[in-house]
Design a protein around this nucleic acid. Sequence first.
DNA 1: CACCTGACTGAAT
DNA 2: AATTCAGCCAGGT
Length: 119
Amino acid sequence: MKPSTADFYERVYRVVRRVPSGKVVSYGHIARFLGTGRSARLVGYAMNASHGDPTVPAHRVVNRNGVLTGKHFFGGSTVMQDLLESEGLRIEDDQIVDFESHVWDPMDHLEQEDFLKGE
DNA sequence: CACCTGACTGAAT
DNA sequence: AATTCAGCCAGGT
């Protein structure tokens, strides 16, 4: 069966929900994990669509540079930063300090097969 | 239906 | 090493 856009969104949310507190993941990581690879933009698009879903910690998703590119979509100006800082992260100039040490790569913690299996 | 935009990324310059 | 360009794909105008 051909995966629909809605299914893609759903998978993105499922991955983001697995991101533990104090950790972050990039759009590219998620895209690669889901097999779409080149469509990192779609991940960002999915996040935009999930804006109303409180079960999706969208503040833990940043770009590959560790920059809070989506903070403007959190209503406030420092909401996203505040959320991350409350989880133990440190933000400086809209960028996560020591970003690479706080990355939670789904590839290193989840198995695609288990994930798709319904985990 | 064609064109533009965007929570991105990697390659090229 | 920093900046620019091009590829991607869905959604809106």
